[in-house]
Amino acid sequence: MSLSSLVGQPLAKRLFFKTIQRGAVSHGYLFVGPRGSGKLYAARNLAKALNCESPSAEGDACDRCPSCRAIERGSDPAFRVVTGEGPRIKIEQTRALVADLALRPDGDRRKVYVIREADRLTPNAANNLLKALEEPPSYGVLILTTDNPATLPGTVLSRCQTVPFKPAPLPEVAEIIVRLTGAPAEQAAQAASMSGGVIGQALELLTSGRLNERLELARSSLVGLGRADVLERVDFVERMAQYGEDRERLAELLGDMASLYRDALLMAVHPEHRALSGRPDRDLLAGAAADYGVARLTRAVERVGRAMDGLRRNVQPRLAIEYVVLNV
């Protein structure tokens, strides 16, 4: 495990190697990208590279020295991860971070702190970090990760260098999954496609067995809601609510639905598009295209999108589900 093996993030990778080689590591980074796109992985391996006892010529971690091993194991004070206790990251946590940051490391080592899902910082906690983000000790590196940078205070954003983490090309994701899990190629491709190119999510889908459940639910919404009456729709609300009681799971499900509706729309207007060629679920999409028609599908894509947006803004999951199911 090292920076070189960070998958699907050529931009971030190039940036890290450049800054390491120039010795110009910034004090504050904001890693922006979907959950599971490798932000924490990159942060950990950046910490390893910065502290490695025998780095490669490009400046990457050797992954074998005591420092690299200790960071990988999580037993090295040079790398700390702060995660929300409960839904928010509280000021006590950032205070503890600031106090720990003040303790000098051994010799010329660097201390790297990761604040995961930084959008969960309470306003007070975020303010408490400002000083540390602006002028940390020379050895300090703070990395904030988020999939929703817009909700972070401007004071935090302006103090960080943003590093985008993008969904990776699907074939690349599928290939990695096959290599890591030994899953059959077809299954890997499906997980990759459903994850939207986010490796962590693809892996989770595959290993948790939720892949099929979620896909099944998204598909039955496409098939079932085309001709459903109000009663059937209410039943479907229940099914969705059961799966998506947790916001994140619901967001993923809505994401799947959005992409299926989009594909159906594409099928309706351009059935020969190359994105649709060879898809195993062509019949399903064609059926939906006929059932809904272009206008309804366009509206459905837009409605699901609005629901996803609302969910990010703290709309009640139940309301979001009802909005989607009753309106597509």
Binding site: A102, L103, R104, P105, D106, G107, P137, Y139
Partner: peptide, 21 residues
């Protein structure tokens, strides 16, 4: 030494990190 304060006595070693600032 190197960001640390060290105390040594017979049979005991004590070490603490120091505060930057």
């Amino acid at each position: 030494d190197g960001g640390q304060f060290i105390l040594q006595a017979k049979g005991i070693h004590f070490r603490t990190r120091t505060i930057d600032g």
